[in-house]
C-alpha cells in the first residue's frame, strides 16, 4: 500500500504544524483529496530514524505539485528570543530549486499562500514577482485556493463549486468524532496533525460515495 514513486496525483503540503493552524490544514488536505489527488507531508511518517531533510526531499521528489503556506513567518515570542519559523520558506526553496535544476521537475506546479495580501515582499523579497493567494485565516478560503490551483491542472470532470465543497467539508468535520468512536479512538486522536495517516484514510473513505 505504501508508495515510494513519483505519482501525478501527489501534492506535497508545506504548512505549519501547530494547533492554531489545524482548521486550515484540515481544509487543505480535504480539498486535495476531494479533487482526486493525494496529500503528502512530513506527518505521514513517524520514523525517528528517518532524517527530516531526507524525508522532505523524498516527498518533494514524489510530488509534481506542492502547496506552501508562508503565513506563519513572523516572530514567535519565546522566553529568550523572538525567532520566526524558517521551515516553510526552506521547503519552498527546495521545491523551487528542484524545478530549476532538475529536468524531471521542470514542470512541477507550486502554489504559495499567505494570510494577508501583499505581505510576501516584506519578508521574502526574492519572491517579489510571485503572486501568492491570501486565505485570511479562513478554512473555506483555503478550500477555494486549493481548488482553483488543482482545477487548472485537471483534465476531465470539473471540480465542484464552493457551496458543494464547503457543505461536504462541514459534513466531514461533523462526522469525524463519530468515525473516531467507530474505530475506538477519541475524537482528538485522529486529528490531521495527531494522526495524519488515519485522518486521510477516514477522509477518503468518507468522500467515496458521498452524496451532494
Amino acid at each position: 500500500m505504501a508508495r515510494s514513486r513519483r505519482d501525478a496525483l501527489n501534492v506535497f503540503v508545506n504548512a505549519p504544524f501547530d494547533p492554531a493552524y489545524d482548521p486550515l490544514l484540515e481544509a487543505m488536505v480535504f480539498m486535495i483529496h476531494a479533487a482526486g489527488f493525494r496529500a503528502r507531508c512530513a506527518l505521514e511518517e513517524n520514523d525517528s530514524g528517518d532524517i527530516r531533510l531526507d524525508k522532505l526531499v523524498r516527498l518533494i521528489d514524489e510530488s509534481p505539485r506542492s502547496i506552501h503556506d508562508l503565513s506563519r513567518i513572523k516572530p514567535v515570542r519565546q522566553q529568550a528570543s523572538e525567532l520566526p519559523r524558517f521551515n516553510m520558506p526552506f521547503e519552498l526553496g527546495l521545491c523551487m530549486g528542484a524545478r530549476r535544476f532538475s529536468a524531471s521537475h521542470r514542470h512541477d506546479k507550486i502554489k504559495i499562500m499567505v494570510s494577508e495580501p501583499y505581505k510576501l515582499p516584506e519578508y521574502l523579497s526574492d519572491l517579489g514577482g510571485n503572486d501568492p493567494d491570501a486565505h485570511h485565516e479562513n478554512p473555506h478560503q483555503v478550500l477555494m485556493i486549493v481548488r482553483d490551483f488543482l482545477q487548472t491542472a485537471r483534465r476531465g470532470k470539473p471540480l465542484p463549486g464552493r457551496t458543494a465543497l464547503v457543505g461536504a467539508f462541514d459534513r466531514f468535520k461533523r462526522a469525524v468524532p463519530k468515525i473516531a468512536e467507530g474505530i475506538e479512538h477519541g475524537a482528538g486522536e485522529i486529528g490531521v496533525r495527531q494522526n495524519f495517516p488515519t485522518f486521510v484514510w477516514c477522509l477518503t473513505e468518507f468522500l467515496k460515495g458521498a452524496q451532494d
Binding site: A34, R38, P197, T204, L207
Partner: peptide, 12 residues
C-alpha cells in the same frame, strides 16, 4: 466524490 475518482492515501 461527485464523479471525481478518490485516490487512496500513500501510507497505511
Amino acid at each position: 466524490f461527485m464523479g471525481i475518482p478518490v485516490a487512496d492515501p500513500a501510507v497505511k
